[in-house]
Design a protein around this nucleic acid. Structure first.
Lengths: 182, 182
DNA sequence: AGATAACGAAACGATCCGTTTCGGTCGGTG
DNA sequence: CACCGACCGAAACGGATCGTTTCGTTATCT
């Protein structure tokens, strides 16, 4: 079932992803699909989560900028090479309808999605590389960078741009008084 | 006509924005709407452009971080207080369908949208505040920050976050070798 | 005044979501 | 071995929306 959804997303992208299409290909009835997933968005979400958790693992390069770059590259690779990218594009697009159920789903999904970045940032804080007060800023800039690339279809592995992004974000100059180097 | 579209967007957001609804309220026929705008997205786009060009003007604070912060706050204010925010949310959502015409529209719109940031960055380059090679990075981080906020509904005037974002982005530490101050 | 173009209203074809209905197939039971 | 009930695929339905077509009316221009 999920396999069929993945297949449709991979072949025709979010544009060609409809519940009817998935049901047809799976040789299943729509009621059966709606038995397990309350809405199309839930189906997209599950496709994304399974796909992504299987692919992206926590990097350990020793520096925040290295970790951020590795994480970003792995995420983009997963978006590029699996239906995860199409699924997330669909989720973001659908969330703009403002449906209450969608927003609830979103509220549960966003923190889960941000978990790897927060983990990497936690390490950096422990190393004294980042002021805890800067965490939210870094999370926002990092996710904004990746989402914008996803939504505009730029999921290619642009190493130099990603490295620059990671270095700038990790440089931590957002505070009024930069900390003296340890 | 545009006034009615603005009104619908303002009252019911992108969720309640349909061509039929606009036609009904305007006392006009749908064919008349489609005579001027080839698709719903074009209508959204024009609402956005008129709304935004009337509101956001180029800041001149003398520093890149100041300009970026002012620009970001003005943009968020326009999104918050006018139908422009709802219109852009709709445009971004609709673009995810991958329709060819949509992508063409997007290709013309994105550069126009980025023009104010690029202008501010041009000033900073002339002042020697920014390496021209960093322009794309700053543009990406700035737009990613704002879009992410728009798409998640966080259009409030979060001064401290915006200032931090502007300072970090403007600090220009993304290069391998930071330029020596002039 | 008469012809022509534009326009509002309504209906249409197509697509899609999410729900309901129907008929057949499989399990377990007396 | 015969029967009953739950599940499921298929199909149809109701509702919404986009973009198009048709039609009668109105307003404009000659």
């Amino acid at each position: 079932m999920l396999a069929t959804a993945r297949e449709v997303l991979a072949e025709r992208g979010f544009a060609g992803f409809s519940v009817d299409e998935v049901a047809r290909r799976a040789g299943a009835g729509k009621p059966t699909i709606y038995r397990w997933w309350p809405s199309r968005a839930d189906l997209l979400l599950e496709v994304y989560l399974t796909e992504r958790s299987a692919r992206v693992s926590e990097p350990e390069t020793g520096s925040l900028s290295g970790d951020l770059a590795a994480l970003a590259r792995a995420t983009l690779a997963a978006w590029r090479g699996t239906p995860a990218g199409a699924a997330l594009r669909g989720l973001i697009a659908e969330a703009q309808r403002g449906d209450a159920a969608l927003l609830a789903l979103w509220g549960r999904f966003l923190p889960a999605w941000l978990q790897p970045v927060r983990s990497v940032l936690g390490d950096a804080v422990r190393r004294g590389e980042v002021d805890p007060a800067d965490i939210e800023l870094v999370v926002e800039l990092y996710s904004g960078f990746l989402w914008r690339r996803l939504l505009t279809g730029q999921t290619d592995d642009d190493r130099t741009a990603i490295d620059r992004m990671a270095r700038l974000i990790a440089s931590g100059r957002g505070r009024k008084e930069p900390r003296a180097p340890a």
